[in-house]
Write a protein that binds this DNA or RNA. Structure first.
Lengths: 210, 210
DNA sequence: GCCTGTGCTTGACAGTTGTCAAGAAAAGTT
DNA sequence: AACTTTTCTTGACAACTGTCAAGCACAGGC
């Protein structure tokens, strides 16, 4: 770390360090997603990476820091998952359709990551050290869902009947249920999720009298 | 086990055996609820019981069998939790009110058991050996919720707009959210849960035009 | 070409885990 | 009272865990 490095780009050395952390996080997510938090040992994690098991303590304080860093690293990317849908939809019906499809797609394509998320969120009820990070990510996910709900309200010209927390809680429940069923039963259940969302989202808004 | 024992009561020895299993399960639930599935060791479990750590393998094949037996033992009691509410309510409003209160109460009084349940359900996505038992209990919980929904439909004379699975998924999501918040923030959040349920349950039925 | 510091590997550590066998203790039978 | 069976405890086992220190490899600066 020479002085003029800092002149060129103020955060160069940190960046290099952080790039390795990201690389490790990416590898860790593979194993964590496969085995879950409790059963993913550092040796197993390192085994699925280009590095040896000792390297973790060069880049992270302990296992917990690696896990938290990893899940933050993942979730940072995916809290914008529905933003394109929100932006591009031009009618409430189109929005619901695209949103439901995207929900099913992410289960299909990233089931292990979602399993890991629910695992960590549940562990945070037993392990206080996890709580802050989980709470923060959960809030970001709630905000993500609310952008969908709010957009629906705008497009349909109907005020939402539910709070942000309630909308997130309910949709998250359906999502988790679908993930569980998908894990046991595979592909077929995803159509059910889409159908559920199509049926339920409109109920959160003032109904056209019928 | 003498022959005439079987004459007196056909299942006597089994019952005695099972009574000890229940006793062990009850102790195990204490520790499991406190530490979660992964961190609750057999020694810790036995430590919170009148027995020593070796006794587990006299009554159970392995740790998994003990855990599954324990959670089954607990859930068998509590899938009837809302039946009195269902039976005694004489109006839809009264039903919602009593149901919401009961939901909050069970978080207040049995939070560790609920944490354990969600822990095990999540672990079942990683550990196939858990899946059958979890699936079965989950179905029983869904049926429990449906009895409430169905009763509401009868009392309010409005057909339900959601399926059994959807109703369970949504309410379970809200419940889990409240449990998480309660674990971090305590008592105050429970009022929020009751309010949410009051607001949301009616949305699952055909609305009075408004 | 030597030297220094960063990056990484290796091997060991102390502690914990589920499991089980050997036998003590208790209960039941004759 | 002698003997059998059931019940339970103790102590050991191999495997596995997170952690960390010692040292190798290899870059860049002199």
């Amino acid at each position: 770390m020479t002085p003029y490095d800092d002149l060129v780009t103020a955060t160069r050395p940190v960046d290099k360090f952080d790039r390795r952390r990201d690389e490790l996080a990416e590898s860790a997510l593979l194993t964590l997603g496969e085995l879950g938090y409790a059963r993913a040992s550092l040796r197993e994690i390192a085994g699925n990476s280009p590095f040896s098991h000792g390297v973790v303590h060069y880049y992270f304080e302990d296992k917990l820091e690696l896990v938290i860093y990893s899940v933050r690293y993942y979730k940072a990317r995916c809290v914008t998952r529905y933003d394109a849908v929100v932006r591009d939809s031009t009618s409430a019906e189109e929005l619901v359709e695209a949103f439901a499809a995207k929900l099913a797609q992410t289960i299909r394509e990233e089931a292990p990551m979602h399993r890991l998320w629910y695992d960590l969120r549940t562990q945070s009820m037993f392990e206080e050290a996890l709580r802050d990070a989980i709470t923060e990510i959960d809030a970001a996910l709630e905000a993500m869902i609310w952008r969908v709900i709010d957009r629906y309200a705008t497009l349909s010209r109907h005020a939402s009947l539910v709070t942000s927390a309630a909308a997130y809680g309910m949709l998250d429940g359906l999502f988790q249920q679908a993930l569980l069923a998908y894990t046991a039963g595979g592909e077929p259940v995803l159509d059910g999720l889409a159908a559920q969302v199509r049926a339920i989202l409109p109920l959160m808004f003032r109904q056209p009298s019928a």
